[in-house]
Amino acid sequence: MSLEVLAVDDSRTMRDMLNLALSSAGFTAHLAEDGVHGLEVLEDIEPDVIITDINMPRMDGFGFIDAVRSEEKWSRIPILVLTTESADELKAKARAAGATGWIVKPFDPAKLVKALQMVAG
């Protein structure tokens, strides 16, 4: 199933990798550089799922998730958090912020795809 995915990460390398992994899986990738940019992109597209980094300039991942969840039309979009930490604390924080799941960096493309399927079909 082809998914439309919005990936938000301030690292160009990470965006390139997400883009490659997603397009290799036949998904459509939309990319944004930080939370503010992510919200702008959301105005134009309706992704099936969002992937977001946490530590970003302007608006970090928590702020971004918060903003997405508080907007009625986006409140049900599954959101995966990209993180280098697998600490439970961070998972709890991500979940408290309204994230659906998480992906630990560096991600294995197959696992990324699996995680996306787990939250968005």
Partner: peptide
Amino acid sequence: LDFTPATLSFDLDIGGDLG
């Protein structure tokens, strides 16, 4: 240091498999 680097490989055609 549970940050275990995983070297990525994009050889697998995930999309095709799914199909």
